[in-house]
Simulated scan of single mutants.
Amino acid sequence: MTKLSVNINKIATLRNARGGNVPNLLNVAADIEDFGAHGITVHPRPDERHIRYADVYDLKKILKTEFNIEGNPNDAFTTMVLEVQPTQVTLVPDAVDAITSNAGWDTVTHKELLKEMISTFKAKGIRTSIFVDPDPKMIEGAAETGTDRIELYTEQYAEMYSKSPEKAIQPYAEAAKVAYSLGLGINAGHDLSLENIAYFNQGIPQLLEVSIGHALICESLYLGLENVINMYIHRLR
């Protein structure tokens, strides 16, 4: 089956908003693994507004499943990844002030940088992935960097899904065929949700892994809310 890696950035955001250590990021990550997830994803940013660099080192000590670290390969990020040695590093071309990821790599323009970074990480035995739009040219460029996988940026799919699932999936299915023919593993992420994930999974039979955070946490708030409210009521009777 396609593996689920849960992005826990939103848990860190909630913790940071109040200060202290509630919710406890490490405990939540361990629970997510116990609940059946196949991996944990984090995306630290330079301002550490959610995941802190220290969190990454702490998580490495306790995780039992695959650990995926996403981010722009600046010097601090690269040093951290090489020290932590996660299962996978996913390179994302985030601007410093980006609220969230909003584009894949131009793997043609940045080919030499990506080749250098991919080689550096693979030399340490870290599986590599490049965040890309569903553009065959960009996927061909990714293959030339030596990366193990690509991660398809799925915001466009999520936006179009409610209007026309068939049109939404088409460029991704075509991109996946190109990637598969070039020997690349295929991951995906961004705005995938309970509403649209099954159709995407069916339409991309080569899909190895999805990374989901924002939607999964939001859905958990709603799907778990009734249970928690009733637990409070029970204790107040």
Rank of each mutant, 00 (worst) to 15 (best):
G19D: 09
T109D: 03
E70N: 00
A215M: 12
R149A: 14
I150E: 01
V56P: 03
N9C: 14
D106R: 13
K3G: 05
T78Q: 09
Y153R: 08
P205F: 05
E83P: 02
K137R: 14
S220Q: 11
R127W: 02
Y180Q: 15
Q88L: 08
V108I: 15
E174H: 04
Q202A: 14
Y53W: 07
L194T: 14
C218Q: 13
E151V: 10
I217Q: 01
K60A: 11
M231Y: 05
A176C: 15
A98H: 05
H50I: 13
A158D: 11
N72K: 04
I150K: 05
G183H: 06
G213K: 00
A175F: 06
S119A: 13
A12C: 09
G19N: 10
T41W: 07
R235G: 02
E174S: 09
E140V: 14
G125H: 10
D135E: 09
V92L: 06
G39H: 11
D97M: 02
M1Y: 04
L207Q: 06
P44Q: 13
F77S: 13
T13E: 11
G185V: 01
L113A: 09
A173I: 11
H43M: 10
L194W: 02
S119C: 13
K111W: 01
Y157D: 12
I130F: 02
E151Y: 01
S220L: 02
A76E: 13
E66S: 07
T2H: 00
A37W: 00
V56G: 04
R15D: 03
N72L: 05
L216N: 03
G71M: 06
H43T: 06
G20L: 00
Y180D: 12
V42E: 07
L184T: 00
L152E: 09
L216V: 14
A17G: 09
R149E: 11
E209N: 11
M1T: 08
T145G: 07
G203D: 07
L152Y: 04
V84D: 01
R127G: 08
E226A: 04
A168F: 06
T79S: 04
N74A: 02
F200E: 07
T79I: 05
V28M: 02
S164F: 02
M160T: 13
K167G: 13
P136A: 15
L59S: 03
E151Q: 12
D97L: 03
V6R: 00
G19Q: 04
L216P: 08
G213W: 00
H214K: 01
V132R: 13
A17D: 01
Q85G: 03
D97H: 11
I62A: 02
D75Y: 06
D191R: 13
I169N: 07
I8A: 07
I186G: 04
L91R: 03
G104W: 00
A215K: 14
A76K: 12
L216F: 10
F121C: 12
E226T: 12
A168L: 11
V42G: 14
T41Y: 08
G141V: 15
P136G: 10
I126W: 06
